[in-house]
Amino acid sequence: MTSAIETSKLTKFYGKSRGVIDVDLLVETGQVFGFLGPNGSGKSTTIRVLLDLIRPTSGSARVLGLDAHRDRLEIDRRVSYVPGELSLYPELTGSQLLTYLANLKGGVDSAYRDSLIERLELDPSKRTKSLSRGNKQKVGLVAAFMSRPELLILDEPTAGLDPFVQLEFEHLCEEARDDGRTVFISSHQLPEVEHLCDRVGIIREGRLLAVETISSLKERALRRLEIEFAGPVEAETFGGLPGIIDIRMDGLVLHCTVQGSLDGLIKAAARFEVLNVRTVETSLEEIFMAYYGSGDAIPGAAKTGADDAGKEAGHAAA
């Protein structure tokens, strides 16, 4: 099976300023892939190379097994793209624009298009210049999904969407994936896509730092715990445990942050009478920040079932 997206040592400089450097990105077909990084990290640059809107300084990019530049027209027949800064022809209504784009694509299933319009609650009779950002985005999403493309490339697609549309959008992505198609979503807002994506790639300052499954990212999660003891406990008791960062006793309550497995901490705490344990599950945002915080990916932290341990501990009371 060919991959949906494959870049090799992809590098793009705009004059002297950095776009992306040596990006080796592999996205398998049939998954929802999150491409994450802060603004200006090179997400859009990578995407625009994939679409042949800009040409790489060096390295190569393949989409659906085809060369991004040489086979562009074939790629464009099978791929849909919604740019981050979506601009529509202001003089056209949503419906006219969709007609135009459908014709350029070589025709689409109009019943399916109409069902998308209905699901996203788009009013297609309005001129696009009078649409709010979220409504423009809906037009872009209908245009992207209506041709049932093998690959959807969506640059910051959730910006400006209200929660209802956001949910419908997630359903559309899941349907596409269940259909064996691929969805590639860029975002700088990790929580917006974390439950949607199977895998994520993290890019910072033009370099791809890591590609991980969501679950293995979570294994590296930093967790904040609060353990309430029945009697006084010295903070030092927990000092030397692996993965423990930042310990503080506040009366009878221990506040600490743990990376990876909670096993050591739980066993050490079990020697005392524990009244309550609360975990504050960190969002991927914080994992994300951990990636940004250091120059490189966090080196292989514990790969045990820390995630499960965390959930159990979350409701534990001794």
Partner: peptide, 14 residues
């Protein structure tokens, strides 16, 4: 300048 070129050229138009 209007930003529509990204969408237009993501369709099979050389």
């Amino acid at each position: 300048s209007r930003g529509t070129i990204d969408v237009l050229l993501s369709y099979p138009v050389s």
